[in-house]
């Protein structure tokens, strides 16, 4: 459903007029495919190019090289109208739930934004639809008139999810979507995501540095390091089989929530 072919993205650093500018290769030659109804976990340290890759797929950044194919079409040579129609199937949830919503709008307006862009609904229909969405993500229908500051981080992330599923997309990209939340809330959101995936036949690209969360929700795993995908894992049951040193390091640095695992005795010092 989604296919990346040789994606490359270089950023310029500073603007020196004299001589060569410094560059950073955020993504070097990444190719990947994502089938329908699959959750692909993309793990890596910060600065490994995961988020840039996500932005390229969303069309927020243009790749220097390579192609993004979505639902059998190359996104870079589509007409604006076709592109817009295709993009409705591609949504996103960011890490920072507070800055992802406009603080001046009500929850109703926030969730209705994608609907207004693609569907011609009367205000009654729109309200009904927004209330349905609120119920799906586990919030009250009365919340429709409230403002973002009246909600906690976990609740705001639910609102962001409601906005992302409003158009019934095919693929949602989660860019560290649970990393900033409390553990308990993280699990609730992950469960919600798993449930939505079944219910609406969604595909996810789940970007995170946290192997625990990725392992919990993903069907497949890609490990990214320095702008490249260094290892693939098709079966999450075989996590111990990861071979690349980067993957091994990620695996070994998971903080297991059980005392005695790696504490005092096992800690190197």
């Amino acid at each position: 459903m989604l296919e990346l072919k040789g994606i490359k993205k270089t950023y310029l650093l500073g603007n020196s007029v004299w001589g060569k500018r410094k560059t950073v290769e955020a993504v070097k030659n990444v190719s990947l495919t994502l089938e329908e109804r699959v959750c692909l976990g993309l793990v890596g340290k910060s600065g490994s190019g995961k988020s840039t890759l996500g932005k390229i797929i969303l069309g927020l950044e243009k790749p220097d090289q390579g192609e993004v194919w979505f639902q059998g079409k190359n996104l870079s040579n589509l007409k604006a109208k076709e592109l817009k129609e295709l993009r409705r199937n591609l949504q996103v949830v960011f890490q920072d739930c507070y800055s992802s919503v406009n603080p001046r709008l009500t929850i109703g307006e926030i969730i209705a934004e994608p609907l207004r862009n693609y569907e011609r609904l009367t205000s009654v229909q729109e309200k009904k639809k927004v209330q349905e969405l609120l119920e799906i993500v586990g919030l009250c229908t009365e919340d429709i008139h409230k403002y973002p500051y009246q909600f906690s981080g976990g609740q705001l992330q639910r609102i962001n999810i409601a906005r992302a599923i409003a158009l019934k997309p095919k693929l949602i990209i989660f860019d560290e979507a649970v990393s900033a939340l409390d553990v308990l809330v993280q699990v609730q959101i992950l469960n919600l995501l798993a449930q939505l995936k079944e219910e609406f036949h969604l595909s996810y690209l789940f970007i995170s540095h946290d192997l625990q969360a990725v392992n919990y929700i993903a069907d497949r795993l890609a490990v990214m390091y320095n702008g490249e995908i260094v290892e693939w894992l098709d079966d999450m049951e075989q996590l111990e089989r990861l071979e690349h040193p980067v993957s091994k390091k990620l695996l070994s640095s998971v903080l297991l929530p059980y005392p005695g695992h790696g504490s005092d005795t096992k800690m190197i010092y």
């Binding site: 817009k84 993009r87 996103v92 960011f94 934004e113 994608p114 862009n117 409003a166």
Partner: peptide, 22 residues
Amino acid sequence: EQNFILAAKVCGTPRLVIVIKH
């Protein structure tokens, strides 16, 4: 660069509307 502008772009809001509304 705030996320809600990015989110608006992703969910298909036209540029002029982003400027006026956000």
